[in-house]
């Protein structure tokens, strides 16, 4: 099952690169993320993951900061 090995982005350690699979959020939020290039199938590199602060990722060559709550909703592989 593909669903089984999905992990929230917030648990990925600094420096790792993962593939985004699914975003568990409302339409508005998902579209906002999509407009910034964050949508299923893109590759994400975690640049900074300081517990419990916000979260910094690199996607399509841009650095983006995500709130921790949001990083919980982003499921990756």
């Amino acid at each position: 099952m593909e669903q089984a090995n999905l992990i929230p982005l917030s648990q990925i350690t600094q420096g790792q690169t993962v593939k985004l699979v699914k975003i568990n959020a409302g339409r508005g939020l998902r579209m906002r993320l999509a407009s910034m290039g964050i949508l299923p199938d893109v590759t994400i590199t975690v640049v900074n993951n300081r517990h419990p602060g916000p979260f910094m990722i690199s996607v399509k060559g841009t650095k983006v900061m995500l709130g921790r709550g949001m990083a919980d909703k982003v499921l990756v592989q």
């Binding site: 508005g28 906002r32 916000p54 841009t62 650095k63 949001m70």
Partner: peptide, 11 residues
């Protein structure tokens, strides 16, 4: 919500 918190960190 405290803001859908996504923000670009420009170079």
């Amino acid at each position: 919500e405290t803001t859908p918190f996504v923000m670009e960190l420009p170079p």
